[in-house]
Design a binder for these strands. Sequence first.
RNA 1: CGGGGUAUGGCGCAGUUUGGUAGCGCGUCUGCUUUGGGAGCAGAAGGUCGCAGGUUCAAAUCCUGCUACCCCGACCA
Length: 567
Amino acid sequence: MRLHKLALSTTRETPAEADIVSHQLMLRAGMIRRLGAGLYTWSPLGMRVLQRVEAIVRSEMNAAGALEILMPAVQPAELWRESGRWDEMGGLMLRIRDRAEREYCFGPTHEEVVVDFVKRDLASYRQLPVNYYQIQTKFRDEIRPRFGLMRAREFIMKDAYSFHMDAADLDREYHNMAATYRRILDQLGLDYRVVAADSGAIGGALSEEFHILAGSGEDELAVSTDGSYAANVETAIVAPPDHPRPKPNAELNRVATPEVTTIDGLCAFLDMPPEQTAKAIVVDGSDGDPVLLVLRGDHQLNRIKAEKHEAIAAPLTFSDVKSIKRAFGADPGSLGPAGFPGAVIADHSVAARADLVVGANENGVHLTGFNWGRDADEPQVADLRNVVAGDANPDGEGTLNIMRGIEIGHVFQLGDKYSRALDLNVLAADGQAVHPPMGCYGIGISRLVAAAIEQCHDAAGICWPAPMAPFELVICPIGADREPAVAEAAEQLYAQCLAQDIDVALDDRGLRPGPMFADIELIGVPHRVVVSARGLKAGTLEYKGRQATQAEDIVFGIEPIKARIRE
RNA sequence: CGGGGUAUGGCGCAGUUUGGUAGCGCGUCUGCUUUGGGAGCAGAAGGUCGCAGGUUCAAAUCCUGCUACCCCGACCA
């Protein structure tokens, strides 16, 4: 590629619209341009990266036995009514009408369509298993699109759907896909973790997420030091404390705590560590009455765990202040288990503590020296909190670390939710009709590109892992317009690189060295050689790896270049 | 959806309080000079000041309405 033909458009200044690194750098490098909220055009430079990723995904999916198809982005409402998701999806789904007032959506996902597709041709179990995938544009009308491609509304996704005769075969393919995803991410050269996950709204049992590690990641991951356990903090299990609750040591004491309504305030006022306090959270119970959840002051409620508790209403609803006042006689900020007649569910950690500080159910008053069983009934005990760094590994040895990640892939075992709802069935060997269990497997292609930048950049710009880079190598001639020998030597090298299948770009834009180098670093090309009159005289080229601090002189010629970039 | 903010040339911004010739830096174009890390000089192009209405002799600036975009929140007792 000759760079002057690529319509490169880099900027020195960071556009005001972006405030995470990947978004800023993609805009500065001219990989994408914003059209509207959560809508982006990919430039020729951006396309080169996108297509790299797509090619690797395709080749691994094909190698894993999946079959590529392409389904419509626009889908009839009727199909979604049949699965029951037309109403469930709510505002996430972009709904449109055609000229005859027929209803459609712009597909946020393709379970319905793929089942419909399979239904037409699938008659016998002998045709199973099968796994169809596509690389397609999806639209999800996010409440708040943000962070550029990270949470765009329109985005590119690789989604795959598998169909099986039985759960065992689904399990086999699920692991096949998980292994395929690992191969894809290994090939892309990214640092990632696979974690157990909540399957969320899509339904189904087993599910794992694939996260690119990056400090700016939106998700928190709990990963054990011995490597045996990894889970999204949303779902990571907290092992119950391994020691019994100590005996009460303190008398119950009423303390006036005027104006204190937060754990921080309470700790400052009483000079107490937060783990000695209990926070009280009131939520609606499944019977409609308020339920008191108690956690250690330094812990955080995990919504997903709470929601799954049978005594708690789903979706999780925090009780309104009026009903709290009625049930407790006090406002939030002064609540506690003492004297509350309703259901109390305490997290393991707070249930294993003695001599706690709790709200007294009287505004501006707290109790110190509170003990379960003595000052209130023994609570129900459950795992309600988010794991924190240092918690015991629930599955093996060691403790948990918390890392941040960007979710770029997700594999699910869906079961027969969709094949049943849409009445897909096949005849089994015994002549019985069966709804084939399904798996579904997604990779956010466009998000993956952004995530790679979050993981890999420096002050000068993007540092692509070689397999994602828009070019493998750039040849930078200096002063080619006034030194014919330089121009000639650069052309010669360029032709040789092409002949050797090196994905090379020739920077023939005629820029001065400063801006030229800055651009090449910004767009993240992994390898650079400089051709100059000075070097030619000495028979050398200058080579520099993108992340190297120093350039080095190498003998002029294709072989020394190959040795550097293919090492 | 609630809260906050912004909208002025391709990009980043000032000007709005106190109404009076629309400005700066970067970028772009032309010429000359310069030439290994974002060059210098000279000249030039480019703006319905988000949209609509209003007040006024006069509106980027004041008033009313609207739109778009960005940020924060949706673990808070």
